[in-house]
Nucleic acid binder design. Structure first.
Lengths: 343, 343
DNA sequence: AGGGATATCCAAAGCGCTTTGGGAGGAAAA
DNA sequence: TTTTCCTCCCAAAGCGCTTTGGATATCCCT
C-alpha cells in the first residue's frame, strides 16, 4: 500500500543509500537534501518496513517483559495501568511486545530464552524486592534492560526508574505530624516489595525526627485491594488507642479504608486524617472521593511510558549508561487531612 | 549464534529450496528427505529467522490487541489471567503481541491503524456487548480476528470463542431449584456486557421452567470486585424476603458475598447456598474458601491460549472459516450448596 | 597548478527466508 | 520406442532495508 524506500528514492532522484542515510541521521548528507527527503516522507507517508529493518540491522525492535504469574501480581490493577503506559509509548515507535508469563521459579530460564531468541532487544522488569536476584541475572544477559523500582541492598549498578517512595511517605508523615498527629497508621503493600519497605522507612524517619516511633501494631502489609484496606482500617479503629491518621499505599487501599472509617461513624479530615499514594488510576481519582483525598502523586502510566522510551532509546543507540531516574512524588493536600482531634 | 537455512542446506547436501519446503510442509518433497531435514533441525537446533520470514512472506507473525482503557476493564483481574494464557501460547509459536491501549471512542481508528500498519496479521477483541459495533468494524478490515465472547443481536457471522454462559447459569439455577430454593439472587457483572446478559437469561429460563420468576430486586450488576460482591450481598440480606441462594458471576464477587454472609451470622451451604462462576484464577480457588464453593467452571487462561492458537492457525494457513466455538462450563458441586432451609 | 582534504552521493552486496520457474530422471502411456 | 507425466530437486529472483567501499566534485594549500 505505502511507498517503499526504492520508490521514494526514485521520486526524489536520489539513491536509496542517501535517502536511508538522510532518514537515519547520518552526517554525510546535505542539509538541504535531508530536508527534501523529510518533506517527501511527509507527503508520501512513507514508513520503513520493520521486517526489512530487522533483517538488515539484526535488531528486533521489540521489548520483552516477563509477566509474573505469582499470586497478587498479575491481578493487580496497577499492572494494567503501567502496561497501558508502556504499550502506548511502544506503539508510537512501532515497537512490539513479547509478553512472557512465567512463574517465579522459571523466571531465570525465561529471561535467558528470551534474550537468546533474538526476538527482543531489551527487557523490562518490575515488582522489585529486597536483594532481588533478578538484577544479577539480567546483568549477565547481553541485552539492555530497565527495572521499574529499585531493589534494596543491591549494590550493583543498574538502570532503573523509581519514585522516591521514602521521600513521599516522609513528606506525608511530616505533614501529619505538623498537624498534630501522633499516632499514625500505615496500610502498606506486600512486605516483600521494596516500595513497601521504603515507604515504611520514610514514615519511620519522619516520626523519628519528631521523637516519635512507629508502632508495629499500626502497620499492615497486604495486597493492594480495597478489601484489605477495609479490614486493616477496621482493625486499627478497634484498637484501644486508635490512630488519628493513616497512610495508604494506594488509592485502592484507601477506598476500603474510607469505607471502614465511614462505617465507624467517623469523619475523614476531622476525626481522622488520611493520605494515600496516588498512582493516578483513571478510574479512581482522589478528588472524587466523598472527601477528596490528600495524596502523594506519581503517575504509573507515565512511568510505563518513560520506561518504554528509555528502553527504545537504549536499543536504538545502544548507549549503555545505566540511567537511574528517581521521580519525586508530589504531595497534594486535599480535604482528607486536618488537625489532629483534641483528646 | 544458531545455524541458518543456508548452512543447514549445505550440511544436508540439499538446496535451501528443498529444506525450506520440507520444513513448511510442501508436498513435493520426498518423505525420507523430509525426515532427514527434520532430524538435522533437531540436531542443530535450527530456528528460522522471523525477520527474514516476515520480509519474505509479508506476514507479521504477531497479533494485535486493543486494550480497552475504559473504567473497570483494564483493571480487571480477569484481564491479566486471560492475557497470560494468550501470551503463553503466542510465545510458544514465536508470535509477538502488539498491545494497543485505546479509549473506546478511538477504538475504530486504532483498529484501522493497526490493520494498515502491517504490524499485525490478526486482531483480538473482548468485552463484547449487545449489538457490538466493533464486529462490523472488524469484518470490514482485511485481516482475520477472533473475539472472546459473543455479541447479542448481531446476526453477522464471525469467529468467536465463548463459553455457554446461558447454559452454565441455567444448570446452576436448576440445581438450586432442585434443592428447594425458590428465591435466588444474582450478583452479576456489568449489565452492558453480553456474558452478564446471557447468564441472567439462563437463570431466568431455569426459573421459568419451574414456574418461578426472576425478581428484579434480586439482581445486581457491577464491576466484578469483591467490594461490590460484599455490598450486593449485604443489601440482599437486608431485604424483608431475603433470598436463600445466590449466584455470583465471579469468584471475586463471591469473596465479598461470602464475607457479607458470614457477617450476617449465616452459614453457607446451610442457611444460604452460593454458586459462583469460576474463571480458574490461580490465586482464588473455590476449593480453598472456608466453605468450598460450588462453581460453574471454565478456565479463562485456557480460553486465552485457545484464542491464540486459533489466531495463529488462522494466520499461518489463512483458512478463513469463521470458527465458532462454545465451551460448556462444568458444574462442580462442593459444600456451598445445600437444601433450602425450611421456613 | 597539482595534491590532499572534504563534502555528497551512489552502486551493489548482503540480511535469511520464500517462491517462481524450470529440469533431470524414471514410470506410465501410446 | 517415443511421448507424456509425475516426482523430487535446484538455481535464482526477490522481500525492503542498511552498509560497505568507492566515486565525483569542490575547495583549500603549498
Amino acid at each position: 500500500m505505502g511507498v517503499n524506500l526504492k520508490q521514494l528514492a526514485e521520486l526524489l532522484g536520489l539513491s536509496q543509500t542517501t535517502v536511508s542515510r538522510a532518514l537515519n541521521g547520518y552526517p554525510e548528507v546535505n542539509a538541504e537534501t535531508r530536508q527534501r527527503v523529510l518533506q517527501a516522507v511527509r507527503e508520501t507517508g512513507y514508513r520503513p518496513n520493520r521486517a526489512a529493518q530487522r533483517l538488515a540491522t539484526g535488531k528486533a525492535y521489540s521489548i520483552g517483559m516477563v509477566m509474573p504469574i505469582a499470586a497478587g501480581i498479575d491481578s493487580d490493577v496497577h499492572f494494567g495501568e503501567f502496561l497501558a503506559g508502556l504499550g502506548e509509548e511502544a506503539v508510537k515507535h512501532d515497537f512490539h511486545f513479547v509478553l512472557n508469563p512465567s512463574a517465579p521459579e522459571d523466571e531465570e530460564a525465561t529471561f535467558q530464552r528470551l534474550a537468546a531468541s533474538g526476538n527482543v532487544d531489551a527487557l523490562f522488569l518490575a515488582y522489585m524486592r529486597a536483594n532481588d536476584p533478578r538484577i544479577a541475572m539480567l546483568k549477565s544477559l547481553p541485552i539492555p534492560f530497565v527495572v521499574h523500582g529499585r531493589s534494596i541492598g543491591e549494590t550493583r549498578d543498574y538502570p532503573f526508574l523509581d519514585i522516591d517512595n521514602t521521600g513521599a511517605f516522609y513528606d506525608a508523615t511530616r505533614l501529619l505530624i505538623q498537624l498534630g498527629h501522633q499516632r499514625i497508621a500505615l496500610i502498606n503493600g506486600p512486605d516483600y516489595l521494596s516500595f513497601s519497605i521504603r515507604r515504611q522507612k520514610g514514615m519511620a524517619r519522619a516520626l523519628a525526627e519528631h521523637g516519635l516511633t512507629l508502632d508495629e501494631a499500626l502497620v499492615h502489609h497486604s495486597l493492594m485491594t480495597d478489601e484489605h484496606g477495609y479490614r486493616s482500617m477496621q482493625r486499627f479503629l478497634q484498637q484501644p488507642d486508635a490512630p488519628t491518621a493513616v497512610l495508604c499505599s494506594s488509592t485502592v487501599l484507601a477506598l476500603g479504608a474510607v469505607r471502614a472509617i465511614n462505617q465507624a461513624g467517623l469523619m475523614i479530615g476531622r476525626d481522622i486524617s488520611l493520605i494515600a499514594h496516588d498512582d493516578v488510576l483513571p478510574m479512581l481519582k482522589p478528588e472524587n472521593f466523598s472527601v477528596p483525598l490528600t495524596t502523594t502523586r506519581s503517575s504509573l502510566r507515565a512511568a510505563g511510558g518513560r520506561i518504554a522510551t528509555r528502553l527504545i532509546a537504549g536499543i536504538l543507540k545502544s548507549g549503555d549508561h545505566p540511567d537511574q531516574e528517581l521521580w519525586r512524588a508530589e504531595l497534594i493536600v486535599r480535604a482528607s487531612t486536618g488537625p489532629a482531634p483534641q483528646k
